[in-house]
Computed example of a mutant assay.
Amino acid sequence: MSRERQIILDTETTGFYPDKGDRLLEFAGIEMQKRQLNGNYLHLYVDPERDIPEEAIAVHGITQERLEEEKAQKFAAVGRQIADFLRGAELIIHNARFDVGFLNMEFARMGLPSIEELDCEVTDTLAMAREMFPGQKASLDALCSRFDVDRSKRVYHGALIDCELLAEVYLAMTRGQFSLMGEEGGETVKEAVNIVSQRPAQLKVLLASTEEAAEHEAYLDGLDKAVGGNCVWREMLSSEHL
């Protein structure tokens, strides 16, 4: 069961490697209470105290001029505010290892507690998507398309807009598991039972074709070869016919 206080989180950075000199440029976190957005959020631009490579600018569009316009402060001036905002919450992050790595690096530079020491629980929606849809694209863009989330306003990868999109994606991805517990606006237990009860008493049985049966047998032959004997499926079949 997730914590009551959740924060959808995203960052933008100068590059990919927090251990090789890359720094944080932008932080955004929007808060949910019991899976309901409550209007509370934290959005900050951060002076990285270094140059911003062109390839990074091509992704998020953040330039030194933009940081000056936004009156970006150094992380040392905003780090404690970010840590206090995150403390004790469940963090919903797409590709969590990346963002947590940068935040922990920046916190360590200030002598602040890590994400783990702040008693945060981390939920990685990238890992969730790969488990739910194995072998399929799991980027935020791909998930927005899958769940019909409008991303027309997303010109660049911006931390705040990405948080807003991820919030919709996360709620869509998890709606089923929470609807059975009576989530408002979701399917209640009674409704779920009614749906099951509406199924016809006699279900149509579709038998495998000759070609499909042959492919299945060939697959089982491969399993037999791999285990050096009968695979579990064939052991079950043989026991049923004893």
Rank of each mutant, 00 (worst) to 15 (best):
residue 117 E to M: 08
residue 149 V to I: 15
residue 119 D to L: 09
residue 143 L to K: 00
residue 194 N to F: 13
residue 164 E to L: 15
residue 147 F to Q: 02
residue 161 I to F: 14
residue 137 K to S: 00
residue 115 I to F: 06
residue 157 H to F: 05
residue 183 E to L: 08
residue 101 G to A: 09
residue 145 S to G: 03
residue 130 R to A: 01
residue 125 T to Q: 06
residue 186 G to Q: 03
residue 185 G to C: 07
residue 147 F to P: 08
residue 123 T to E: 14
residue 105 M to Y: 15
residue 215 E to S: 09
residue 192 A to M: 11
residue 118 L to D: 12
residue 151 R to M: 03
residue 189 V to P: 01
residue 195 I to L: 09
residue 156 Y to V: 11
residue 177 Q to E: 13
residue 174 T to K: 14
residue 97 R to G: 02
residue 137 K to A: 03
residue 102 F to Q: 07
residue 201 A to V: 11
residue 181 M to N: 05
residue 121 E to N: 10
residue 106 E to K: 06
residue 219 Y to L: 14
residue 227 V to M: 02
residue 186 G to W: 12
residue 184 E to H: 05
residue 204 K to N: 15
residue 227 V to N: 05
residue 187 E to H: 04
residue 205 V to M: 13
residue 197 S to W: 03
residue 198 Q to D: 13
residue 173 M to G: 05
residue 176 G to A: 11
residue 220 L to G: 02
residue 154 R to N: 05
residue 127 A to N: 07
residue 208 A to F: 07
residue 216 H to V: 12
residue 172 A to H: 09
residue 100 V to I: 15
residue 161 I to V: 12
residue 173 M to A: 08
residue 183 E to S: 09
residue 184 E to L: 09
residue 125 T to Y: 09
residue 117 E to I: 09
residue 114 S to P: 05
residue 228 G to P: 02
residue 144 C to Q: 04
residue 200 P to Q: 12
residue 227 V to W: 03
residue 181 M to V: 12
residue 118 L to E: 13
residue 123 T to W: 10
residue 224 D to H: 08
residue 169 V to T: 06
residue 186 G to R: 06
residue 157 H to K: 04
residue 140 L to E: 03
residue 152 S to T: 06
residue 155 V to D: 06
residue 223 L to P: 01
residue 202 Q to N: 08
residue 103 L to H: 03
residue 139 S to R: 02
residue 151 R to H: 07
residue 137 K to Y: 01
residue 206 L to C: 06
residue 216 H to G: 14
residue 214 A to Q: 15
residue 206 L to I: 14
residue 147 F to Y: 15
residue 195 I to P: 02
residue 116 E to F: 12
residue 139 S to A: 03
residue 181 M to C: 04
residue 144 C to I: 02
residue 226 A to L: 07
residue 154 R to E: 09
residue 98 F to I: 02
residue 200 P to N: 13
residue 135 G to E: 06
residue 147 F to W: 07
residue 223 L to F: 01
residue 216 H to S: 13
residue 223 L to K: 10
